[in-house]
Amino acid sequence: MIKIKKLFIKCNNFYIFRNLNFFFLKNNIYVLTGNNGTGKSSFLKSFVNDENYFLTGEIYFQKYNIKLYELDFVSRIGIFISYQNSIEIKNIKNIFFLKTCFEIFNFNKKFFFKKLKCYIKLLFYKKDLLNRSYNVGFSGGEKKKNEFLFLLIINPILILLDEIDSGLDQTSVLIIFNYLNLIKKNKYIILISHNKNINNFLLIDFYLKIKKNKINILKCI
């Protein structure tokens, strides 16, 4: 279980959340909803201690209060975030970046290329992107696929996705959502999407509506 206790999130002297208490259960998919500017992205970023926000309170994951740790440690205990605007890393080849991350998160390092080949086929991923700088010059859809490839490579426990379906063609969206449905067991999946038909493709357990600094929960039956 992920427990959030008395969480305050502030940016530019403005409180986005005040005294937030909440919990998340494993084996579930949560979809964050709400108007633009209500704090959906800010909420996801609080799990990785984004330096653009001032945070107080506690977020417990894997028995750690992750607010006390740096991003490197937070990633190593199994938290992954895909940002709405994907990060670009110049002069670092995509394949070297993915291989390094694979070796950090996997004890058996010899299966990287075998798994990469499988994931590339799954995502209809363009192989030439592997030899380019990470996300540099990629289209919006290519960046989203690259982020999801990164997710597949490191196999995290807590998956945070900010509009992962934005900019993707319908086939790619279906592939990603179907894969999330397959791996939801033993995972925490929290995502933001403006896709009005998302419930037709994704096995959503809870909708979370953010309004006036609060989270209201609606269970899907």
Rank of each mutant, 00 (worst) to 15 (best):
Ile154Asn: 06
Arg76Lys: 11
Glu142Tyr: 05
Asn181Asp: 05
Ser82Gln: 06
Tyr188Asn: 01
Lys145Thr: 00
Ile9Lys: 00
Leu123Met: 13
Ile176Cys: 00
Asn195Arg: 14
Leu130Ala: 08
Phe111Arg: 06
Leu123Asp: 01
Ser86Asp: 09
Lys185Tyr: 09
Asp72Ile: 09
Asn91Ala: 12
Asp50Arg: 07
Glu70Cys: 11
Lys214Trp: 02
Phe8Trp: 11
Asn85His: 03
Phe17Trp: 15
Asn21Glu: 11
Phe17Leu: 09
Ile120Cys: 11
Phe54His: 11
Asn213Glu: 14
Val173Pro: 05
Asn197Gln: 11
Lys185Trp: 06
Asn28Met: 15
Leu180Val: 06
Tyr134Arg: 12
Asn200Lys: 09
Ser82Ala: 12
Leu152Gln: 00
Ile66Leu: 06
Gly167Phe: 04
Leu122Asn: 03
Leu152Pro: 11
Ile189Asp: 07
Lys187Thr: 15
Phe43Val: 07
Lys63His: 09
Lys114Asp: 14
Thr171Ser: 03
Leu182Tyr: 05
Gln170Tyr: 09
Leu55His: 00
Val136Lys: 15
Phe124Ala: 02
Phe105Leu: 03
Glu70Val: 03
Phe8Leu: 09
Lys214Ile: 01
Asn27Pro: 03
Lys93Asn: 09
Val173His: 09
Phe97Leu: 07
Ser139Phe: 02
Gly37Cys: 07
Asn12Phe: 14
Ile164His: 04
Phe138Thr: 10
Phe201Pro: 02
Phe61Lys: 11
Ile2His: 13
Ile175Pro: 02
Leu71Ala: 13
Ile2Arg: 07
Ser133Leu: 10
Phe138Lys: 14
Phe80His: 10
Asn52Ser: 02
Asn28Phe: 13
Ile92Cys: 03
Leu160Gln: 04
Ile153Pro: 01
Tyr119His: 08
Lys143Ser: 00
Gly140Ala: 01
Phe22Lys: 00
Leu203Glu: 13
Asn186Phe: 04
Ile9Gln: 02
Gly78Glu: 14
Ile89Arg: 02
Ile104Trp: 07
Val48Glu: 05
Leu129Lys: 10
Leu71Ile: 13
Phe73Cys: 12
Asn146Gly: 04
Ile95Met: 14
Met1Cys: 06
Lys214Val: 03
